[in-house]
């Protein structure tokens, strides 16, 4: 992507309130090509943000743009935007194929039938495409909705809780699909309240807590930025106890502990630990075998952000 092109999704100072309840409070971010996960507990405002990005809610304040164009009251953006809503309902009397083909026709695609077949194959729904949507399971409805959203090959894809109801195999399949689409230069923004889904898929994470953007970026980077929370490492060395005694003399080290025979080190920050550990090892004459961060999972990042 050239540097001059506008971001796929851009929110600038966006707020949305219902009466005197603020659902989204002064949120700004940009989403570029790749997979971006919108993470937050239920009721944090994820759906409100996605609806605003998809042009189905008017921002009370601020500016929402899709590929440089305003999202609100601009149906033209749907030529380059696909949307998978959270609600399960589909037209129960249409077959899966008819449903996807309807989307293709509404997008005025030159060959709607072929486009529908392609989209159905992408989500692995060929076998069930002839059945009415009303007979589908939750996961199948989810996949046929994704096929309908993909049928016009959009540059930007917005999905509200796309993994709801999908079984583990379908989940892997969808993750794989999103990764492939992202690799083709598309921007994918999806919401989830399940950390594992975001951690395994998203290149970038947007964390929403109580209507505000609590963090954004690569979650490992977010973690590194959280200097007021000690980082913890598990360390294996030639002499754990000698290393522990020496480490306590380093000002950047907050504490050491032995848990189940392993040395746990808590430090002020990633960089501080990176300097202190080798220095202490050298001073104590100990060889470091392994230094492993213990709680770099998104879960711990998230728990931290939510608590703050």
């Amino acid at each position: 992507m050239s540097g001059g092109s506008p971001p796929a999704i851009e929110l600038r100072g966006v707020s949305r309130w219902y009466g005197n309840v603020v659902a989204v409070n002064d949120v700004s971010f940009e989403v570029g090509p790749g997979v971006t996960g919108l993470l937050g507990p239920n009721g944090a405002g994820k759906s409100t943000i996605l609806h605003m990005a998809a042009g189905f809610l008017r921002p009370s304040a601020g500016d929402v743009r899709i590929l440089g164009e305003p999202a609100w009251r601009n149906p033209g953006i749907y030529r380059r935007l696909g949307l998978v809503p959270e609600r399960e309902a589909v037209y129960g009397f249409l077959t899966g194929r008819e449903f996807v083909e309807l989307a293709a026709r509404l997008h005025r695609l030159p060959d709607p039938a072929a486009a529908a077949e392609r989209a159905i194959a992408l989500v692995d729904m060929d076998a069930a495409a002839g059945r009415p949507c009303g007979t589908y399971s939750k996961g199948m409805k989810q996949r046929i909705k994704i096929a309908a959203a993909l049928v016009h090959d959009p540059q930007v894809l917005i999905l509200d809780e796309p993994f709801n109801g999908a079984d583990p195999r379908q989940r892997l399949h969808l993750m794989d699909l999103f990764r492939r689409m992202a690799a083709e230069g598309r921007a994918i923004l999806y919401s989830s309240h399940i950390l594992e889904e975001v951690e395994r898929l998203a290149d970038t994470v947007l964390v929403i807590v109580a209507g505000r953007l609590a963090a954004s970026g690569d979650y490992r980077q977010i973690r590194a930025l959280m200097t007021d929370r000690p980082h913890a490492f598990t360390v294996r060395s030639s002499d754990d106890r000698a290393l522990a005694a020496r480490l306590l003399a380093e000002p950047a080290i907050r504490g050491v502990a032995f848990d189940d025979g392993r040395l746990e080190v808590r430090a002020d920050g990633l960089l501080a630990a990176a300097r202190a550990l080798p220095a202490a090892a050298r001073a104590a004459g100990v060889t470091l075998y392994e230094v492993r961060p213990t709680d770099e999972s998104l879960e711990s990042v998230f728990a931290y952000l939510v608590r703050r």
Binding site: F56, P75, L81, P85, V90, Y91, F99, L102, H107, A148
Partner: peptide, 15 residues
Amino acid sequence: EDGTAVYLLATPVPR
């Protein structure tokens, strides 16, 4: 009411 209107509205078809 069912929420299916979104599938028609998320298209460039003029309102």
